[in-house]
Design a protein around this nucleic acid. Structure first.
Lengths: 185, 185
DNA sequence: CCATACCCTTACGCAAGGGTGAGAGTTCAA
DNA sequence: TTGAACTCTCACCCTTGCGTAAGGGTATGG
């Protein structure tokens, strides 16, 4: 005899229903409430949280923001400022400011990630050249590898591997140095 | 009469020296040791950590990686695998794999951040149109704003603000609907 | 020999976003 | 009326990269 979504004939959702409909856990929804992001529309006589169906959209919106790297606290702060402002244009201005700040942050993040991308690509290119190094045997040989890898310099990401746990070079460059001297001779 | 860097005439650095030279804190260096990223070359008779000067490079490398979004644990894992591998090409292959994984992750991050960038730009464009909305008075008016903002649809980031704490629309759209009907009349 | 700067270990705290109980009460259908 | 499924409120656990003591020992110049 299910009339409502959860078969209780109510227009309201219980946390479990809200959780299922949004793909979040009950705990997560409780957390959103603790943080002031979402409140139940009312409570049942027994104390159960009862949510307005539109709460689904709210939860999805929260999820969207956090998925995009905006923290729950940030989201709450901006919601609070929005709610407590009674002057429309003023609130809109605050929102604009927030978005602008976030935009700068985001662009900075993109820059850094692209830098990492370049480093990784360079590192991979370098490692590709190791493949044609033949069969150097042990990692020690790689560590002391003095071959020209066709890449100008050892990429910073790769260079860090060349040391022991105490930061020193694995050995004080034993015989292989002579090999190089032979070569450059 | 200082002979060494720290005036103790030793070839070694103490943790404070290493910290100063790398711009990290002593605590951070201790942490790197706890995580197995870096060990002192030896200890003084009194128990002070003594580092090889090359440890500076190691710390800078760790800093580079973490600054680029690679966690200390990840760094340690890859270092461990590198160290325990005794076959060069094999270790290089693992490294390539790691870099490839990281590269995919990074590109995914860039995609998401760019998505956020677009959302923010759209949101800002939308909010700009609010500026010419005149003086709507309270936020309630903005919430019920039915004006065509020139942007196709309300950006998702902005839409989330249109609700009360329980997720419902601020009011069940009271008189303003009629106003709109007047308009579109 | 002493002052001062430095270092040791141990261990708790923060922020973020929940996970995972425990122990008790509520709803709902059979 | 009962049993299953659900929910309630604490409240502590986890990760990551350190910060910040607390309580004590070490190194070194004067």
């Amino acid at each position: 005899m299910a009339l409502g979504i959860n078969g209780n004939g109510s227009q309201y959702l219980r946390v479990g229903d809200l959780a299922r409909l949004t793909g979040k856990t009950v705990r997560a929804i409780h957390l959103y409430e603790e943080l002031g992001l979402l409140e139940p529309a009312t409570r049942s006589s027994g104390g159960f949280r009862l949510y307005h169906p539109a709460a689904v959209d709210r939860v999805r919106w929260i999820d969207l923001l956090s998925g995009l790297g905006i923290s729950l606290h940030e989201t709450r702060d901006v919601l609070d400022r929005w709610w407590k402002s009674d002057h429309g244009p003023e609130a809109m201005a605050e929102l604009r400011e927030l978005f602008n700040t976030k935009l700068e942050e985001t662009r900075e993040n993109i820059r850094r990630q692209q830098e990492l991308e370049r480093e990784l690509v360079d590192g991979l290119a370098y490692l590709e050249t190791c493949r044609v190094c033949g069969e150097p045997g042990t990692v020690d040989c790689c560590v002391h590898c003095t071959q020209d890898h066709g890449v100008g310099r050892e990429p910073a990401l790769v260079a860090g591997f060349k040391g022991t746990r105490d930061g020193a070079r694995r050995t004080p460059r034993p015989a292989l140095v002579h090999v190089e001297e032979h070569r450059s001779d």
